[in-house]
Nucleic acid binder design. Structure first.
Lengths: 95, 95
DNA sequence: TAGCAAAGTAAGCGAACGCTTACAACTCGA
DNA sequence: TCGAGTTGTAAGCGTTCGCTTACTTTGCTA
C-alpha cells in the first residue's frame, strides 16, 4: 500500500500487528519501545522518530520501497509532481 | 530501492535532490523546513520527525510503498521474518 | 452479566528536537 | 588562483519527545 502520511503508517502497523495476532505489549517489547509509544504511533503521531518507525516496520516484517520520480513518469505518462502544490499545503502548525 | 534505515532515506533524498538539480536551501524552503534540518536528514538523522520525512519524499516526487509480510512470503518462498534477531539488535543508546 | 486482558489516557522527567543566526569549509567555473 | 555559491558546523532557545507509573475504559469470552 502507498504510504503518504503518519496516519497511513499507523493504520498499516496496527492492522499488521492484529493480523499477526500480537498485542501492543508484546510488539512493543520486541521493538524495544514503550507500549505508550506504540499506542501513539498507531494513532498516526506525526512527530515520532523515523528510526523507531522503521524498526517497527522491520519487526512486523513489512518492507518499504521507494520509487524515485523518473520511474513514475516513465510508468505513468502524464503523471507530474506538483512541488508547488505540496508546499502550498505547508506544514501544519506544531501542537 | 529498499528503505531499511534513516541513512537509506538520507542517501535517497540527497541523490534525488541532486538529480533534480535543487540546492539545499531551495528544497528546504519548498518543504517548509530549515536548511539545517535537511543537512541532518541527508546525513541519516535517526530521530527526525516521520511527518517531515514523508513531506520531503513527497516534495521530491518519491513514492513509498509498503509490502506486508504475507505478500513477501508468497512472493519469496523461504523468506522468513526473524523478529527475535531484529530485537537483538536493540535500539542504540540515545545520544 | 462478570471478569480478565488489552487498549486508551494522564502527569512529570531528562533528553533531543527544529529553529535562527553566524561563521567556516568546500566545490566549481571563469 | 579567485570568488561566488553551496554545504557543513556550532550555540542557545522554546517545544516536544519517549519514558515510567498509574489508572480508566473497552472488548471479548465464559
Amino acid at each position: 500500500m502507498r504510504i503518504r502520511t503518519p496516519a497511513d503508517l499507523g493504520t498499516l502497523i496496527r492492522s499488521t500487528r492484529k493480523k499477526l495476532q500480537l498485542d501492543q505489549s508484546t510488539l512493543a517489547k520486541k521493538i524495544g519501545v514503550s507500549r505508550l509509544w506504540l499506542v501513539e504511533i498507531e494513532k498516526g503521531k506525526p512527530r515520532a522518530e523515523i528510526g523507531l518507525v522503521l524498526r517497527t516496520l522491520d519487526a512486523l516484517g513489512i518492507s518499504l520501497n521507494a520509487t524515485p520520480p523518473e520511474s513514475q513518469s516513465l510508468n505513468r505518462p502524464g503523471s507530474t509532481v506538483d512541488i508547488d502544490r505540496i508546499v502550498a499545503t505547508a506544514r501544519e502548525p506544531r501542537k
